[in-house]
Simulated scan of single mutants.
Amino acid sequence: MFEAILFDCDGVLVDSEPITHGVLRDMLAESGWDMPIAECMRHFIGRTVRSQSALIEARTGQPLTDAWMAAFYARRDAQLRARLQPISGAIEAVRAAHGVTRGRIACASGADRGKLILQLGQTGLAEWFGPHVFSGHELPRSKPYPDVYLAAAASLSVLPARSLVIEDTPTGVAAGKGAGATVWAYCPAAHLADDLRAAGADLLFPSMAELPARWRQVGLGAA
């Protein structure tokens, strides 16, 4: 059924969202937009900071400058180096995916490449993906557009329709579906389910540790 498995990174492979959005919340508060971390995550999870520049500038009354972004990246990366952990079951799932697809796996993220390389390297995941790591920052359009998943599938010489995407946000689900892939959504919290289904997720699952068994159910790696 599937010839390749394409993983999102943040929230799927690594538990980076609370760290990244904690830094973002603090910096926005320093700039004049103070809000709880939950509200910050509602506004920004699954989206690039720059894509929300109009909202940021309206709430802070200040331009979103390159210097501000550089400071954000520096503070974010310092916290990721100090605190980042893989999502439970993610390393085992990636290892299994590599086996059942004979190496046809990729990481396709809306994050900047520096963050991707840091996170995959720090959690020991980089070796499984090799050169097949794609950042939406380097493509004409980032998620929710399909460009990053189209690029990932092309790098593996696999049709998007024969690819399985693993996502965790409505934005990412829309990107995978827009590419023509089947999308399974990691959904550890029940209140997220409706939004993921509305975005087009084909299947929801609550634990990354379940993935190898679910692949066997659809015939992946059965031989």
Rank of each mutant, 00 (worst) to 15 (best):
Y73F: 14
G180Q: 05
H132W: 13
P146M: 01
G219Q: 08
M27G: 06
P144R: 02
A126D: 12
R113E: 10
P131L: 07
A74L: 11
A152I: 04
A199T: 04
T60L: 08
A108E: 05
F72D: 00
L211G: 09
S53T: 09
R95Y: 08
S207Q: 15
F129M: 05
G219D: 05
R102P: 00
G22V: 08
A193S: 15
V158D: 06
E92A: 14
L156H: 00
R76Q: 15
G99L: 13
A193H: 02
D8L: 03
P170K: 05
R59A: 07
A189I: 07
D77R: 14
G89N: 05
F205H: 00
G61Y: 02
G180C: 05
S16I: 14
D66N: 13
R197I: 04
D15S: 10
D168V: 02
W68Y: 06
V23M: 12
D10G: 07
R83H: 14
A222W: 04
G46Q: 04
W184V: 02
P144S: 01
A185R: 03
I5P: 00
D77N: 15
R25M: 10
G130M: 10
D202F: 03
T65Y: 11
R50L: 11
L150P: 03
E39F: 01
G46V: 04
E3I: 03
E127T: 10
K115T: 15
S163C: 10
Y149K: 03
T65C: 12
V100Q: 04
D195V: 01
G200A: 03
R216D: 06
E57T: 00
R81T: 11
A152P: 07
A93V: 09
R162F: 06
S16L: 14
C187S: 11
E138P: 05
R47K: 15
T48K: 06
Q217R: 14
A90H: 12
G221Y: 09
G99S: 13
G103T: 04
S31V: 00
L139Q: 03
S31A: 15
D8H: 03
V100S: 05
A193E: 14
S51L: 00
S109A: 13
P212G: 06
T65F: 10
V14A: 14
S157R: 14
V218Q: 14
G11F: 06
E17Q: 13
S16Y: 15
V49S: 05
L211M: 04
R216N: 07
T65W: 09
W68A: 08
A222R: 11
V100Y: 07
P160F: 07
L55E: 08
R141P: 08
G219I: 07
V23R: 12
T182Q: 08
E17N: 12
C9E: 11
G46P: 07
G89P: 04
E39G: 00
S51I: 00
L6E: 06
L120T: 11
A71S: 13
A151S: 01
F2W: 11
F129Q: 05
A70H: 09
G114P: 07
K115N: 15
Q62T: 12
L6S: 06
G103M: 01
L55A: 10
